[in-house]
Write a protein that binds this DNA or RNA. Structure first.
Lengths: 220, 220
DNA sequence: GCACGTATAATTGTATACAATTATACTGTT
DNA sequence: AACAGTATAATTGTATACAATTATACGTGC
């Protein structure tokens, strides 16, 4: 999220991840170190490191002495991840209600103010950015390094789906209004309510995809 | 868990992780590629790959061009992880109640039968092994690749703490009886009950550590 | 024509070599 | 003696070289 690490090695890592999430590398496709290295203009060494990291993230399967293969992500996988994430975001909001600072609350309110503006204008790029930031603030205000770590991982993982869902203007409007309610609960330090709202907020994303169909998410 | 991957590279990875979790490498300690390579009798290449993987797991922080440092794990971190895990194990048990097969139920019952035996005998090594297996079966019977993935990660992360808690015989007895109740709920396919019981089961571990003090977990 | 075995090529796994960066020690100046 | 600047060493980052393994192609026997 915040960590600006523009070394060559991490650039390779993120590029490959992006290519998997965007669908440039197809599911089950074999990722050859030499080929990717040539594509990105680097040697096999940083590519190998990246592939092994991506394996831990679950985006790639490595069969020793054979190769690295893109792990396909199914509709069910996305559903599962969202349901898992909804529980975690709920717990995160609960903790945030207990630990959030005045400054963090202020930034959340500013975030919502700006989101209203950009949703109105239909700037989906900025809306996505603000949504990212909203949840990032929540992760930080939970006061838990572990919670932050796991949710940031998920966030990366779902980046692809989120682009689609927030582009739908109707969902964007609802999403911001849900954010507003969460912030209200945080201001009252009402942990149970914050948990419930954050939980529902994530599940609404899935319901939204269900009602609009999954075609946008997968095929074009 | 199940994945037998005894390549040199993954051996290095697990050895370093073990050394961090066991405390051989102290918090904030700088891990030098050359030194570790010599310790393990390998070159820098596999060590580098391992360190970058460990960074993703959150056990190591890498500052580009400077070095890799062991991330200390605090009492609060462990608490947080257990609370996060309790929610996830709850959701996992809920899903398991909906998807578990006859064969998996049979293996769970056999697992409990054997656990009773080894708890009686005081074989903490076997008890730990059976406990690992019990939860592994649950992860598989959830029918969710994503759920399995995330819980296996946590499981590794907490291996160190779990050795201590299950060595306490009293906790071991309670733990097995909680397992039994979870299996009963699964047999009835009572998702809500299974979730509640699994959730409480994990939280009880933390309560147990609290009541016995944290000294065993950290210092000797 | 097909199965099998072997030779060849391609790919991964590991070690080493070199480049770039950072840390350390030394020297001279004030 | 304290400090700055520079040279040296140590360490990380990347590329390449070699070893081990796996995939492929080819030829031989049937």
């Amino acid at each position: 999220m915040g960590e600006d690490n523009y070394s060559l090695s991490s650039r390779v890592f993120r590029t490959i991840r992006e290519n998997i999430l965007s669908g440039k590398y197809e599911p089950e496709e074999e990722l050859k170190e030499k080929t990717i290295g040539e594509e990105l203009g680097v040697s096999r060494t940083p590519v190998r490191e990246a592939l092994r990291q991506l394996e831990l993230e679950g985006l790639v399967t490595i069969i020793p002495n054979k190769g690295a293969y893109v792990v396909g992500i199914s509709q069910k996988d996305i559903r599962d991840i969202y349901e898992i994430r909804s529980r975690l975001e709920g717990l995160c909001a609960k903790w945030a209600a207990e630990n959030i600072t005045k400054e963090q609350l202020d930034e959340l309110e500013e975030n919502i103010y700006l989101s209203d503006f950009h949703v109105e204008k239909g700037n989906s790029e900025q809306v996505l950015e603000l949504d990212n930031r909203f949840h990032e603030i929540l992760y930080n205000s939970s006061g838990s390094r572990e919670m932050r770590h796991i949710l940031v991982d998920f966030h990366h993982y779902l980046q692809r789906v989120r682009k689609v869902t927030l582009a739908e203007n109707k969902r964007a409007v609802n999403s911001v209004s849900e954010h507003r309610k969460i912030v209200e609960a945080l201001k009252l330090h009402d942990a149970e309510l914050a948990e419930k709202l954050a939980n529902e907020h994530i599940m609404n994303t899935i319901h939204n995809i269900d009602s609009h169909g999954w075609d946008h998410v997968f095929g074009e």
